[in-house]
Amino acid sequence: MLEGFGPILRKDLRLEVRTGESTVVLVSISVLILVVMVLAFGPAGARRAEVAAGALWTALIFAGTMGATRALLSERESGCLRGLLLSPVEPATIYAAKLSVAMIFMAQAGIAVLVVLVLFFNLDFGGALLRLLPVFLLGIVGLAALCTLLATVSGRVRAGAMLLPVMVVPLFAPALIAGSKASAAVLAGQPLGAVITWLKLLGAFDVLFVTAGYLLFEHVIFED
C-alpha cells in the first residue's frame, strides 16, 4: 500500500541535504518571527509563558506553510510531479511521503525556534520543554497534514504560495487554540495531565487532517 514511499522520502531528503535550501529558509524565517515577537512583547513579565507559546505557534504556522510548499517545490521543477503520477505509486502514498517531508522540515524549524525561545524567554531547559514535546509533535502532524493538502491546491494557482496561509489559518484555528493553550500551560509549569483535554483536541484534529489529506489528495493532484 505504501510502495514508493521510501524512494520518494529518500529522494527528497537527499535533495535537501545537497542544497540545504529549505532548512536555511525555514529556520531563518521562524527565528526571525520569534525575534519580532520578542521585540514587540518583551521577554519578561507575568504573561511570559503565554507570549512564548504565541510566538512558538506563530513561527510554527509559517514554518508549516513554507515547509509544505518547499516539499512540493522539487516536484514542480521540470514537471517531476507528472513523473510521480505516471508511476505505479498511489496518490495517497505520494501524499504520505510529502507529509513526512513537510513534518521533517517543520520539526527542524521548530527545534531551532524552541532553542531561541528558551534563551529569549529565559525558560527552563528541562521539565517544561520535555512536557512541551507531545504538544509540539501533535501540533506539527496536523499542521503538516493540512498544509500539504492545501499547498497542492495553492501550487496550481498564480500567487498560490501567498494564499496558503490565508487558507491554512482559518481551518487550523481550533487546533491552533488548543496547541497554544496547552503550550502556555506547560511552559508555565503545569503538568501534562492538566492539558489532557487540549491534547485530545489536537489529536482529534490530527486524525481529521491526515484522513482528509489521505482521501482528498488524489482529487486535487491531477490536472484538469
Binding site: 514508493g4 535533495l15 522539487s74 521543477e77 521540470s78 514537471g79 517531476c80 505516471l86
Partner: peptide
C-alpha cells in the same frame, strides 16, 4: 518536460525511477 530532477545526477534519477517502479 523531461520529468527528471535537475539537482539529482543521471544515475540518481534513473535509480529513483527504477525504485519507484519496484
Amino acid at each position: 518536460q523531461s520529468l527528471l530532477y535537475p539537482r539529482l545526477t543521471c544515475r540518481e534519477n534513473m535509480e529513483f525511477y527504477s525504485e519507484l517502479f519496484a
